[in-house]
Write a protein that binds this DNA or RNA. Sequence first.
DNA 1: TTGAAAGCGCTAACAC
DNA 2: GTGTTAGCGCTTTCAA
Lengths: 336, 336
Amino acid sequence: MVTIKDVARVAGVSTATVSRVVHDGGQVGDACRARVKKVITELGYRPNSNARALVSKSSETIGVVTPKLSMTFFGCLAAGAETTARAKNFKLLMSNSLYETQSELDAIYSLREHSCDAIVLHSEYSDEETLIKLAKDIPGLVIINRFIPQLANRCVWLDNEAGARKITEYLLSHGHKDIAVVTSIYANNDPATRLNGVTKALAEAGLELAKHNIESATANMRGGEDAVKALLEKGCKFTALIAYNDLMAVGAMNALQDAGIDVPGEVSVVGFDNLYVSKACRPNLTTMEYPIEEMASYAANLAIELSQGGNQTATKTHLFVPSLVERQSVALARST
Amino acid sequence: MVTIKDVARVAGVSTATVSRVVHDGGQVGDACRARVKKVITELGYRPNSNARALVSKSSETIGVVTPKLSMTFFGCLAAGAETTARAKNFKLLMSNSLYETQSELDAIYSLREHSCDAIVLHSEYSDEETLIKLAKDIPGLVIINRFIPQLANRCVWLDNEAGARKITEYLLSHGHKDIAVVTSIYANNDPATRLNGVTKALAEAGLELAKHNIESATANMRGGEDAVKALLEKGCKFTALIAYNDLMAVGAMNALQDAGIDVPGEVSVVGFDNLYVSKACRPNLTTMEYPIEEMASYAANLAIELSQGGNQTATKTHLFVPSLVERQSVALARST
DNA sequence: TTGAAAGCGCTAACAC
DNA sequence: GTGTTAGCGCTTTCAA
């Protein structure tokens, strides 16, 4: 490994001068700078970032903590953060939290040990108090996909209720009145919030969402299938179905089709997230776009700014609003 | 930030002793060790890994370089590496190469600056020579999804030809004789290798793969659609279609169905990779499993071992073989 | 068993 | 404009 000393020796200058050249400080004579630069390329010198981080207490590293990288949603999140990291010349440290409070915290501490002071955290299990305490310690900590009032300016989140409301209104505008909902038993607030949006939109249209029209299951394809089967077995009648997310929606469509029910001919189906699958399934799924990649990129930027002492406007919030993506899984309700 | 000095001071010992306790070295008296441990927890001391890496020249960090994290395939790759990292208590440094030679190299050098000596690289554009030179410099460099003879013991790869062969034979065993192929213009060797497998399997059955039964396009859903349209327009007749990967297969199925052709009733379709989409599409896709997560986890292990001077058996290769996943997109060929 | 001290590669005063 | 120097937090001889 070639160090700054090697460069200094070969170029016949002090390490301080080399350091200045590396950092493009203006305080170096032209001839000297040229010589040093030449030596740097000749020797292939690259500053050791551990040493740099050690002395400067900042590592130009951004950490991302998500539950599970293999899920498309989190892959996109990571990709968004990576875009920012690349643009700012930061390194990206990834950690899976595996949906556990303790590993969430472990991951964060491990990041800290690396002098990684910009952190984007997707937390589901830690309670608000823990997070608030953590945020106090770590100026560059940003929470993604969750809103904590006391941390308003550190949360990058999505208006789930507005999204659910919007897609419900869309269904309403297509003449649907008998609407079933497949929600999830997912740990965070999202299911409740989205359900809330649906209920409100329905209420405003003078409709009530009957309890027995709601079925809940795990937030994946299988869950969607199971929920629809349960709905069908109960003898539930509906012309449209709102699923918690795309995965459940796809499962639901499959179950519907397996039961000989045409989608969207007899039943319209909508999802949430706009994952890749929504373009792969038949019919293509109408859904709400969850701009997670963009949000993550934004969050990473915010985390970096905060870690550098910028963007201290405590009152500013970072709320994203999902948008409707019309595809083929919704049709006009058949007049009854 | 609480440092080793703080702990030493509070515990009334030297930093060397604290270091020994942290490392579980046996050379510390019981009473002393207990006291130090107590102080460590009380103060919440965590060793700074930059300092540690600086002095020990090893950072317990594994780097992963892939083209694009937002693609499911690479997300799974990252997840596999993460599993190993977690198990070995390593950190995971991610870098996107964006499909470019230069950024591939940049990413690797940047990893090196971090004293990250175990690296898993998914390289597509760099030539073998560059890679061989790199591998010489970096003992812990492992190449994934590519085979370079001179680096046999450092490559973790998949037998694409065997996979293609296997799935072709599967189609053959279902009575298909008129087979079309949708291949891709992807940059690496995989398309050619898979095509090769198909051709060979067909040849062994006394069948020839006619040029005009092959169509090539970009390796995504859209490409699959386009290719099928082209095939259909040419008036190509086939009862089975082999797609380069799952994404193209799904696109192909959609195009087929849009053209009023029943899948698998009239045309059977198979893919490659076994991505999540293959369970989302209708009919569910029969495909070859590409165990990328497992492979990445394996590769990460190998990289760590190599970086620590182990596993020097230069003759050992690391070849994975894909397995058939039967779903619903293949039917018996209709007797003609 | 424990401590003192040197030094990893780099940056940032401070001096000249 | 350039060099000297003192650390950053930690590990690791070498002595005691």
